[in-house]
Every structure is written in structure tokens, then in C-alpha cells.
Design a protein around this nucleic acid. Structure first.
Length: 586
RNA sequence: GGACCUGUGGUGCAGCUUGGAGUGCACGCCGGCCUGUCAAGCCGGAGGCCGCGGGUUCAAAUCCCGUCAGGUCCGCCA
């Protein structure tokens, strides 16, 4: 697995196999377990970064778990019947071993084992250096490195050049909240940590580095989630003279290679779907397509029917993913859940066979439904006897939002989901909704190129303008997004105008970028995706904390170091800063 | 900013609904025994501000209020 051990050891633990029986080896690592059998026989499981090997010593010395030791001895075949098939090294052992204690250890607060119930995450984080010894985290961190390596290799083969960009950047008031860094040499002024290298990489395009990439650390001072930390890592990429199809091809190749490196799986499909279709069929712009249960539109069926709950602009319905039967109380819970998600209500239809063999439904509104309604619902959704159909009516956007959440929640709770299902979501809208002043809100960032066919809608019907932007989705997680950027100052000016950003404000915020675009900007576009999320999904983890060596808690604390902490008064003074009494926290 | 779940020897849990002596299980730790175990086994032992503060009560791990910490989610994440 690993080559060329040096120094104090000749072999890694997992390299001690029946192929080197008779060799004298020296191995180094931590004591995973000690099994004493009287005065003259002790078994020690020695654990290193590759695995575990059993050592046998015949004298009795003081030994405890997690002590660091070096063992020198001869590789022997284990006596018949004592092999351990669960270990790669289980056919052999290091016998007649002499043992040197390199470092003693206090009793660890929890066992370094994947086989036991894990301690509370706060305990794991407090002693992260111990937690990281566990095989699963060792594997995750290594897999993550393999992913980075594969991505680098893939992009280098396309001629991409790795370029670093500043960590001390300039405030840009749009977008995510930034971490501020006070300046000592310019007291009262601040750098910010980059929320992404977006503007820097566009400047690199102006500079003629036509294929740039970076495995970039980014910081956003926003609330944390299972898939979000303050600090995260993204593959950041930008290329000149390319179409959006070119960019997606680069990313597809890099992600495929990373997937193969991490999981061995190859030839995975990367289908694409338009944003509109994703919302209509899955109620989400990041659909989990590991399962179907798609949403169907039924409003046409009930238009003019007079059934108030269904005679609505939009009626979306899908077959509920089920594990066994839906009890009445379970259905009541779903109705509550739908209401909590903002729906006026949730209609359910249990498909059943009537005594005469015809189709019937159990439903709160069964008595209003005609036979042709039932037949059409069943036909359109492909429902079978026993299925429960859930429907939400109202405005299109609202119904899809509620149904999409229910579909995802029920699917993940009730179905056996496995495999990796990538999906490109394309043709995102340029703007999403209007702000309080009635101006459109940029769906991506304000440098995103509108679809050429939609230019004329920019001011007449901005919400209908599609952007040349695209997201990559894996198993319902948004991995990342990208776009073709605006390189034409006239179009950029129109977009700022549509967003309600005056030339003056635009110059104030992004003057240096607009300035640069006046000196010969190539058409360009790019992408960025989250390495943490990709690594978590490829490792089969539910949170990105499991693929980050030293993550923070949801309240932004580092339980191991105690950060954030107060800093010395004279340090504050050198920045020209003071902490107000009301802000002080013990 | 908000909602929900959790907090009991070093660790994982039970106890809380219906208040009555820190009670129980598993692991770990310490000591002893043990020559083929492998999450070794057997015997013995130590270890607790029941997160913290307040309230109700004759009496609180248990009920109430607040607070802190961990998690999940909403808002937020151009």
C-alpha cells in the first residue's frame, strides 16, 4: 500500500504478510490492544497508518493502549487454527519480538476503534488527534488526498495551470458575509478572506492565463451546517475562449477521475436537465435522482371542476416512496409537515381496488372525485394498487417547493438508496425573484452571461432571462456551479442596470475588474465545486466534518484549540481596535 | 434571529412519563490470575457538582424557567 518505509522501521503493518515469512522486520506504531496470557505470552496488536499486525512477546513488561512502540522480530506463520481472516496480516505474526517503548500515553478518553459506538461529537472534536487515528477517518483523509491528486492530474492533462490567488483580498459587499482581517500598517482598514477566488480568476483570464485552476481555500462567515463549514475547499477553474459545454466537459472528466480514484467506479453517467424541468419533475434545483417518484402536473385535469382544493393554477402530485403501508397517523404527520413547509394543505389518495375490480381511492376528498379523475391520476403517475399519491396545489413555484422537499425526505427515509448519480442542471434563470425595491436578484453572481436569445427580455421580463450557468449535483447535493462570464462592458453595464446597481456603485465595488475588462478581456467561463462535499459523498459520509481533519462545531468553535479567543490588548491597539463592553463574552 | 433533539463516573446507554438514598447495563481504567489470544477470559477494586444557575416541593437526575455546550433544520450561504 505504501512504499519505502525508512528510519526506525522496515515495513508497514499491512505489509507484514505471508509473502515475507522468515524475514526479520521492524514495525512502528501505536498499541491497539494488549492480551496478556500469564508470565510468558503476550499478544500486541500494533496499529500504524496502514493497518494492524499482531506481535508476540514472551517476556512481561508494562504496556498500555496507545503507547507508541517499535517491534523487531521475525515474520512467522501463525500456528494452525489461530489465523485471523479479518486482518490482511492475519495469516502471520511477528514472533519472538523485542519491543521498545518510544512514547508512553495517558489513558485515552475513548477507544480508537470503528467497532464501538462513537462518543459524542464534542468529545471527538476535543480530542480530534485521537479520533483521527480511527481507520475510518484515516481512510477518509487519504481518500480526500486521492481526489485532489486525481483532479490535479486530470486538469493538468487538459493544460490547466495551477495559480495561487491572494488570501488577503478586498471587501466586496455582494454575496456571502466575509471574514475581516484588520490591517496593522493601515490602521482602521481591513482586508477580507476570499469567499471564493471569483474575481481574481477572471483577472487571470484578462492576463492571458487561459486555463487556470486552483484547489482553493475559501471562507464564508455564514451559519454552519452538516455540509457547510466556515472554511471549505473548492476546485476553482476558469478558461478562456470556451463554451459552457467545454467547461462542463473539463469538470465531468475531473470529477469522473476523482470518483474512480476514490471508489474505483468508472463510466458513470453525467446526464443534464434544465432548471425548469428539474423544478417541474423533482421540485428542486438539485434533484436526488437515485430514485424516481417524479412529480406530475394535474391542474389541467381539474380546471373548471369546481373542486376548490384542486381547481388551482398548479397541482403537483407524486407517488409517496413507502416502506410498508402509510398509516392514517403517518399521513396526518405528512399533512402537518406540508403545512410547516408552507403549503395550504396536502391531499392524499390511496389507490385501491373496488369490490367490482374497478379502481377506487381512499382520500379526504374521495367523494368529489369522478372515476375519470382517478383513472387519469393512476395512468399519468403509473400508480399501482396500494400506492399513496400525495398532491399539493397552489402556485407552481410553491407546490414544487413543498413537493420537492417531501419527495426527498420520504425517499431518503423509506428507500434503499445507493450508488452515485451525477446530474448537470443547466439553463438556470439569470435572476431569482425581486428585492424590496423591485429589482431582480442575481441568481448566480452579477458577472454571469445571459443567454444570447434572452437579451431583449432583460428589462421587459427579467425573470424569464436564462443565464449561461450550470450546477453539478450528486445524489441531491449541490457540488458546485459555474457560468460563462460577461466580457463585454456593454452587457455588464446592462446587467448592473437590471440589478439596480448604478455605474457609480459598480465602479466603487468592482472598479478594478471593470477597468481590466476595458483592456482586452477574452470570452471566458468557469466552474467551482466543493471538494469537501465530493469527498464526503464518495466516502459515504453524512457530513463534511468526517472528511476534514480539524472541523469546527455548528457554533463556530474549535473545541480542540478553544478558538476563537480573546487577543492581547496591545495587539488590538496595534490595529487601532477596541472591544466594546457589550460585545465581550467570557 | 428561530424550531426541534440531546447532555447521568473516562466512554456508550438505561433511569425522567407517574418526584422518595446516585440505582442498573456494557466498555474503559487500576490490581491479581492466566502459554494461542485477537474488541481475550476469570476474580477483585476505584471512580459521580446527574452540563450550569434559579424556581416549585417536606423531598428534584426526574417538574418549571433561564443559560451553556453538541447535533439536525429554517433564515443565511451573490
Amino acid at each position: 500500500m505504501l512504499a519505502n518505509p525508512k528510519g526506525l522501521r522496515s515495513h508497514y503493518a499491512s505489509a507484514v504478510t505471508d509473502e515475507i515469512i522468515g524475514h526479520e522486520v521492524s514495525v512502528c506504531g501505536w498499541i491497539a490492544s494488549v492480551r496478556e496470557h500469564g508470565e510468558h505470552l503476550t499478544f500486541i496488536d500494533l496499529r500504524d497508518s496502514t493497518g494492524v499486525v499482531q506481535c508476540v512477546i514472551s517476556d512481561r513488561i508494562e504496556l498500555h493502549p496507545e503507547w507508541v512502540i517499535r517491534v523487531v522480530g521475525k515474520v512467522s506463520k501463525r500456528p494452525g487454527g489461530t489465523e485471523n481472516p479479518t486482518l490482511p496480516s492475519g495469516q502471520v505474526e511477528i514472533s519472538d519480538a523485542s519491543l521498545e517503548v518510544l512514547s508512553k500515553a495517558n489513558a485515552v478518553p475513548f477507544s480508537v476503534s470503528d467497532q464501538k459506538d462513537l462518543p459524542d461529537e464534542s468529545v471527538r472534536l476535543r480530542y480530534r488527534f485521537v479520533d483521527l487515528r480511527r481507520a475510518r477517518l484515516q481512510r477518509n483523509i487519504r481518500t480526500r488526498a486521492q481526489i485532489n491528486k486525481a483532479i490535479r492530474h486530470s486538469l493538468e492533462s487538459f493544460g490547466f495551470l495551477e495559480i495561487e490567488t491572494p488570501m488577503l483580498w478586498t471587501p466586496t459587499p455582494e454575496g456571502a458575509r466575509e471574514f475581516s482581517v484588520p490591517s496593522r500598517l493601515q490602521p482602521g482598514n481591513f482586508y477580507v478572506l476570499p469567499q471564493s477566488p471569483q474575481i481574481a480568476k477572471q483577472l487571470l483570464m484578462v492576463s492571458g492565463f487561459d486555463r487556470y485552476y486552483q484547489i482553493a481555500r475559501c471562507m464564508r462567515d455564514e451559519d454552519l451546517r452538516s455540509d457547510r463549514q466556515f472554511e471549505f475547499t473548492q476546485l476553482d477553474l476558469e478558461a478562456s475562449f470556451v463554451t459552457q459545454e467545454d467547461v462542463r466537459e473539463f469538470i465531468t472528466q475531473a470529477v469522473s477521475d476523482a470518483t474512480q480514484a476514490a471508489t474505483g467506479q468508472s463510466n458513470l453517467a453525467f446526464p443534464s436537465i434544465t432548471y425548469r424541468e428539474a423544478i417541474a419533475r423533482y421540485g428542486s434545483d438539485k434533484p436526488d435522482i437515485r430514485f424516481g417518484h417524479e412529480i406530475f402536473e394535474l391542474s389541467d385535469l381539474f380546471a373548471g371542476s369546481g373542486i376548490r382544493a384542486l381547481d388551482q393554477p398548479s397541482v403537483g402530485a407524486f407517488i409517496a416512496p413507502a416502506k410498508g403501508e402509510f398509516s392514517r397517523s403517518k399521513l396526518d404527520q405528512l399533512v402537518d409537515r406540508a403545512k410547516a413547509l408552507g403549503a395550504a394543505g396536502l391531499l392524499w389518495f390511496r389507490i385501491k381496488q373496488g369490490t367490482d375490480g374497478s379502481l377506487e381511492v381512499d382520500s379526504p376528498i374521495a367523494k368529489f372525485l369522478k372515476n375519470e379523475h382517478i383513472a387519469e391520476i393512476v395512468t399519468r403517475l403509473g400508480a399501482k394498487t396500494g400506492d399513496v399519491v400525495l398532491a399539493v396545489s397552489g402556485e407552481f413555484k410553491a407546490t414544487r417547493s413543498v413537493l420537492g422537499t417531501l419527495r426527498t425526505e420520504l425517499g431518503r427515509a423509506n428507500l434503499e438508496l445507493e450508488g452515485l448519480r451525477y446530474l448537470w442542471v443547466i439553463d438556470f434563470p439569470m435572476f431569482e425573484g425581486l428585492d424590496d425595491a423591485g429589482n431582480p436578484i442575481a441568481a448566480h453572481h452579477p458577472f454571469t452571461m445571459p443567454n444570447a436569445d434572452d437579451f431583449e427580455l432583460m428589462f421587459s421580463d427579467p425573470l424569464a432571462v436564462r443565464a449561461q450557468s450550470y450546477d453539478l449535483v450528486l445524489n441531491g447535493w449541490e457540488l458546485g456551479s459555474g457560468s460563462i462570464r460577461i466580457h463585454d462592458p456593454k452587457i455588464q453595464s446592462d446587467v448592473f442596470k437590471a440589478l439596480g446597481i448604478s455605474d457609480e456603485v459598480a465602479n466603487q465595488r468592482f472598479g478594478f475588474l471593470l477597468d481590466a475588462f476595458g483592456f482586452g478581456a477574452p470570452p471566458h467561463g468557469g466552474f467551482a465545486f466543493g471538494i469537501d462535499r465530493l469527498a464526503a459523498l464518495l466516502c459515504g459520509e453524512d457530513t463534511i466534518r468526517e472528511v476534514i481533519a480539524f472541523p469546527k462545531t455548528q457554533s463556530g468553535l474549535d473545541l480542540m484549540t478553544g478558538a476563537p479567543k480573546q487577543i492581547a490588548k496591545d495587539t488590538l491597539q496595534s490595529y487601532g481596535l477596541a472591544i466594546s463592553e457589550s460585545q465581550k463574552k467570557a
